[in-house]
Design a protein around this nucleic acid. Structure first.
Lengths: 236, 236
DNA sequence: CGTCTTATTGAGCATATGCTCAATAACGAG
DNA sequence: CTCGTTATTGAGCATATGCTCAATAAGACG
């Protein structure tokens, strides 16, 4: 079936479409080429999922499939790099300090933090790749959840405890209702992204405003839930 | 495609010595067989996504791949049937009446409704297939969102308006903050399922309790948001 | 048991897909 | 310009995958 040179040449006579060789910015330095492949792969896999073909990816990158394999030993390895790049490289190191800076009112800290943090899950690439990875059973999601738990959930619950006059998390372990509060907020935020990038239905016209409304509701709910579940001896 | 009668007839050795049929699939009636294939496909596609192979599906069903194509003309058609079965056949016709039955307190109605409704998106098959479909760009999600909007979002907002003394939705159009409230609740619920079936991280030990906490928070937030955004002339 | 209907099978086809490798050509050094 | 290094290419391989069809055999009925 390979012996069909006639149909082959008939199909590919020349460059009928755009960018076949126009973007022939050929012969880049390995570092730069690898970087381009990585960034292109992020976009590509976000769009097509990890079952997208390497042929098509190479075509979109304007390079040959062979070149792909010079920089990444396998499709699997490429995907692993995509995970690293998308999820672990975009974590702002200042968030934690901002969240726990008691010179500012907590509600204000929460609003500014989530206004910034929400950009991650609301980003096209981030959200879709996160879902594809999870559905494929990749471990990256669990790793990310652990990160969020340590650097967001725990600190925020700690600050809320302090705000509402309950014992700190070191003295009174974090409860399930408190954790559910956090999950609920993050779920609502992520769902805004899902509406946009997965369901393709109308998202809020004012995303920042929607996030702020979510944070305000969260703050009030937190107060109520903590009072209802931590009150017995929980008060300082 | 059929124009290849070259050495076709030559190679037909026919191996009738097949004792390999250990799992002898027994001759079911077409209706029953189709039903089994459909149910098996739901489980299979929920697990592997729609890029799962028909060969493997047939194997899991204990039948040959050929039989699959006797009952469903193509993989695509099968998937379409899966959508129908999962999303449109499981909608309870009594929900709407329950939600608007003003003989019962609204908060109670909401709790019982969501305790029941949440079973859908929290189900393994439902949640994962919904995500796979959305990521693949299927239109079923938009269809489902429209359904939820008409039969849940609008009625609930209407009841909340009545509960808190604002003008009905026929007189004062539903606002974006109100819709966001609904989305937020549904997002939080769906996210519980995602934790279980997609991220494989710890889900609440008491799901029903978590749902109830969500509904309570939702009710309070709704009151606050409506008061903040509908007050000017909105009051009855 | 024999016969007929049809549910069921699996080899096979055409194409898709991850990956290899010998050949090619772009850039820099001399 | 010449030459050497190496980024880049694309035909090609091995296997995967949706789907077809002639052959098979499991029941129903006499």
């Amino acid at each position: 079936m390979k012996t069909s040179p006639k149909s082959k040449s008939a199909k590919r006579p020349a460059q009928p479409l755009l960018a076949t060789k126009l973007t022939a910015a050929k012969r880049l330095t390995p570092t730069l080429r690898a970087e381009r492949i990585l960034q292109g792969s992020i976009r590509f896999f976000a769009e097509h999922g990890f079952s997208g073909q390497t042929r098509e990816l190479a075509h979109e990158l304007g390079i040959s499939k062979g070149l792909l394999y010079r920089y990444f030993p396998s499709k699997e390895a490429l995907i692993e790099r995509v995970y690293q790049e998308v999820f672990l490289r975009r974590w702002s190191p200042t968030w934690q300090a901002e969240l726990t800076d008691r010179n500012r009112p907590l509600i204000e800290r929460l609003k500014t933090f989530y206004a910034d943090y929400a950009k991650l899950p609301l980003e096209y690439e981030w959200g879709r790749i996160y879902l594809f990875a999870g559905l494929a059973g990749a471990s990256i999601n669990r790793r990310y959840v652990r990160l969020a738990n340590e650097r967001i959930f725990k600190p925020v619950i700690g600050e809320l405890r302090h705000e509402f006059g309950f014992r700190p998390t070191e003295k009174l372990a974090i409860t399930e209702p408190e954790l559910e509060l956090m999950w609920s907020l993050h779920g609502s935020i992520f769902y805004i992204g899902m509406r946009k990038w997965v369901y393709h239905v109308k998202a809020p016209s004012d995303v920042d405003g929607a996030i702020e409304q979510l944070v305000e509701g969260f703050y009030i709910n937190a107060k109520n839930v903590m009072r209802a579940t931590l009150s017995h001896g929980g008060k300082t």
